[in-house]
Design a protein around this nucleic acid. Structure first.
Lengths: 192, 192
DNA sequence: TGACGAAATTGATATAAATCAAGCCATGTT
DNA sequence: AACATGGCTTGATTTATATCAATTTCGTCA
């Protein structure tokens, strides 16, 4: 898949389109990266200078809360991985990115991307859609975590992210769902 | 306060600025509204066509989950009230807006606002900052609700929204903090 | 292929907060 | 001013899920 194809795919995924010139501009800043299972793509304390488009594989974002690892998000094929806080605020991240499978991602340097936004209304539209999506998604997630039992949270998760549910290790799914691995195990066994 | 002042205040609040022309354009679409305590500003099932800038007063956004009223957000002076889902998706809202005090708000018709975004890069920048802020805020909130005890959630809330903590009725604060009014009472009494 | 360490399961117990229940206090109304 | 209504407080009990502990299963690499 060529970088220009990636650019189009990215736009399509967000419900927008790019003409050839915009797609080429955008594609020109992509940095392809092969990643292997267990690899850290963004380490604690680094400032996130890119967001990522996943072409192949599965990633998770996680942070530490009182020494416990908490998974914030899973991303697989054609999802966009970004650490809002660090990238927008230019602060060292507390949210790490890790590859859970071998795969291929495309790094999009954020500063260059923002420059393209100012030059191309189509790319700005893309960015706005990305933010809008992130916001809607984030609010939906918060909602799911309010007033849902462990079992319901798991069922919602399986429906919404079937790929992650199949491919990610249980302990990460458990921490994503705010429950212990023991509880996840019981939910899966139908005991909860 | 004139509409143009409101526009500037709005921009400043979001860390951007508007030149006179942009401020006047923006101000021209504001619709001033006096609201009274208990008044519903957006009812269930309506499509949110505006977002609101609060000049004076206190509002809350809430929805029903299994018949229980859940407060999602409080906004007071110079906060911006918006129902992302409904406004962006143009769907009937499940998130209602209610005034908790007498006050004054300024309605900003979203379609007209988006049109101004396309015409004015300064206003587009304002919108992007609004979305970015909303995203960061939303993620912070999700985080606060993960792994914090009832007491910690209350303490965080008081620190972050001292005005709402002082001015809003306890039962709404309790539902915002995902606890029963009984628990909030015990937290406040230092019993939890 | 076998063996080791990590992950998942299963069971027993502990705990934070919900629920249920009753009474008290404030606020606003006739 | 008396009353009523909703909101807050306080106490007793229940419940979902965490925690602790002991195996079992699985995935990875020598």
């Amino acid at each position: 898949m060529t970088p220009v194809d990636i650019a189009h795919k990215f736009a399509t995924r967000l419900g927008t389109t790019l003409d050839e010139q915009a797609a080429q501009r955008l594609a020109s800043i992509f940095v392809r990266q092969e990643v292997s299972k267990g690899e850290t793509l963004l380490a604690e304390g680094q400032v996130a200078r890119n967001f990522l488009i996943v072409e192949q594989g599965l990633t998770r974002q996680y942070y530490y809360k009182n020494g416990i690892e908490v998974t914030e998000h899973f991303c697989c094929e054609w999802d966009v991985v970004y650490c809002t806080d660090s990238m927008l605020m230019r602060e060292p991240t507390t949210l790490m990115i890790e590859a859970l499978e071998d795969g291929v991602v495309h790094n999009v340097p954020f500063d260059e991307f923002r420059r393209l936004c100012d030059e191309s209304p189509q790319i700005m539209k893309l960015y706005v859609r990305l933010l809008e999506d992130g916001l809607v998604e984030s609010l939906r997630k918060t909602d799911a975590q309010r007033f849902e039992s462990a079992r319901e949270r798991y069922e919602t998760f399986v429906r919404q992210y079937p790929e992650a549910a199949r491919r990610a290790p249980g302990k990460h799914i458990a921490s994503y769902l705010l429950m212990t691995p023991e509880s996840l195990s019981r939910v899966r066994a139908g005991l909860l």
